[in-house]
Computed example of a mutant assay.
Amino acid sequence: MALAGRQIIVAGAGIGGLAAALALRQRGAEVTVLELAEAIREVGAGLQISPNGLRVIEALGQSAALSARASKARAVVLRDHRAGREVLRLDLGKLPEGQGYLFAHRADLVELLADAARAAGVQIQLGQAITQITPGTPPEATLVNGDKRSADLIIGADGLHSVLRGALNGAAPASFTGQVAWRALIPNDFGHPPEVTVHMGPGRHLVSYPLRNGTLVNIVAAEERKGWTPEGWAHEDDPANLRAAFSGFGGSVPQMLSRVDKVGLWGLFRHPVARRWYGEGCALLGDAAHPTLPFLAQGANMALEDGWTLARCLDESADQPQALARYQQLRRDRCARIVAAATGNAWKYHLSNPLVRRAAHLGLAAAGRIAPDRILRQFDWIYGHDVTA
């Protein structure tokens, strides 16, 4: 066990950081997680845990705990915006055997990973703001109060505005996509089925699916706009603005939006995938390495894959630089491909020309009738990937 006794600091107690911490601890490392927040609160909203991410949850021994809090996904359904007419249904029950798909609240996944990490002996220290990470032998993290922490390895799982990413790659300006998104949670008192539903309209679309065993519904609604919105999902907006933006939508959309009493709004930005994922005594994972747009629901799944792969590479080689190089080799191209696919996905839902939209929807409907399995197989390269094999 190459990791036995290795001192490792993880910056960030998000999904990727906690998954990595647990996987490293299970292999014998001494792990400390430094988290900016004063408490692990119920933040964020819904996540789609697709088969590739769920395999990591299973390998970490947390599948039963997550299933008890999550909703099992039955299908992905695309609908036209006007009356909610079904265009295409992808039956997730036809995924290959062993490929599960869950809807989970982010807070539930973070909590269970944190509990499992603590139980395994990981030290999670809250209220620890890191202002600088300096690669080296050993690497060093500087806290806002001036304290310095060193270890054999420091992992930057510190998200979109990662301190370590900047140290390894320099500044990487983001570009506004011309899209914003709202996020809300509402009570499921109207019987939303266990499905991802995508209502597609001109210049906008709305996604909904149930959480917490069907008691809540997660809503993410994206709109094209020229105006710039500050990056981040914590900007509170007036629910009336969301309802106005989707006033032309029918089906179940008016019913859902009538229940929104609190909504967050954030601008969607493109960030390049980091060129360098590791340096002397340090490595990146999750959004710190490959921020992605939400149009393939793979952000959390990629972070889970990163955490497991990094732990595995470090465990398989006592040569840490070699292990980190192997980690980047295994992960970067795959993540870059997923990020690119997510970036290119939104336009498919936002067709503005009525004739083009109708033709596209008719084509999708025909494909769904003639070859539904073929449509589902287009995701094999994502869902069929198994970093735990």
Rank of each mutant, 00 (worst) to 15 (best):
G93M: 06
D152T: 03
Q123G: 11
P173H: 07
L185A: 08
G170F: 04
L168D: 00
K72L: 03
D152E: 02
A181V: 10
I130V: 09
T134L: 12
S175I: 10
H105A: 05
G100W: 04
Q128H: 12
Q48D: 15
Q62T: 10
L160D: 02
A119C: 07
E86H: 10
I155Y: 01
F190I: 12
G127F: 13
L47T: 11
R165Y: 05
N52T: 07
I49W: 00
A83G: 14
L90R: 09
R106C: 05
L164K: 06
G121R: 14
A172I: 08
R69H: 05
G170D: 13
A172F: 04
D189S: 13
D158E: 09
F190N: 04
G127I: 14
R89P: 01
A75H: 05
L102Q: 12
E97G: 05
A184K: 02
G127D: 14
L88T: 03
G146T: 06
Q48M: 10
G166N: 11
R85D: 13
V180M: 10
L164M: 12
K94F: 13
P51K: 02
L95T: 09
N169S: 07
A172M: 11
Q179N: 13
D80Y: 06
I133K: 00
T131F: 09
Q123S: 15
Q128T: 11
A120L: 13
A70T: 12
R106Q: 05
G191I: 11
D189N: 15
A119H: 08
A174M: 14
Q179Y: 07
I154G: 01
E140S: 08
Q125V: 15
L95F: 06
N145L: 08
T177G: 15
P187R: 10
G178V: 14
S71A: 09
P193Q: 13
Y101L: 03
N52L: 07
F190E: 09
V76Q: 05
A141I: 03
A116N: 03
Q125P: 13
D147F: 02
L54Y: 04
A172T: 08
H105T: 07
D147C: 09
N145K: 12
A75V: 10
L160C: 06
R118N: 07
L185R: 02
D147M: 08
K94N: 15
L92H: 04
G127V: 15
Q125R: 15
G170W: 06
T142Q: 12
A116V: 09
A59W: 00
N145Y: 06
G156P: 00
D91F: 05
T142I: 12
A65I: 06
I186R: 07
A117Q: 07
F103E: 02
L113T: 08
A117E: 09
K72T: 05
K148C: 07
L60G: 00
G127L: 12
G61K: 07
R82K: 11
L90P: 01
P138F: 08
L160S: 03
S63M: 11
G121T: 15
L95Y: 02
V77S: 01
T131S: 08
V110G: 00
L78P: 00
S71Q: 09
A184P: 06
A116I: 09
G178Q: 12
G93N: 14
E195H: 04
F103H: 02
K148M: 10
P51R: 01
A119W: 05
R106F: 04
L54I: 00
F103A: 08
A73N: 01
R165W: 04
V163R: 15
W182S: 14
A151M: 03
L112H: 05
A107L: 04
I133G: 00
Q62D: 13
S175P: 06
K94A: 15
A174C: 08
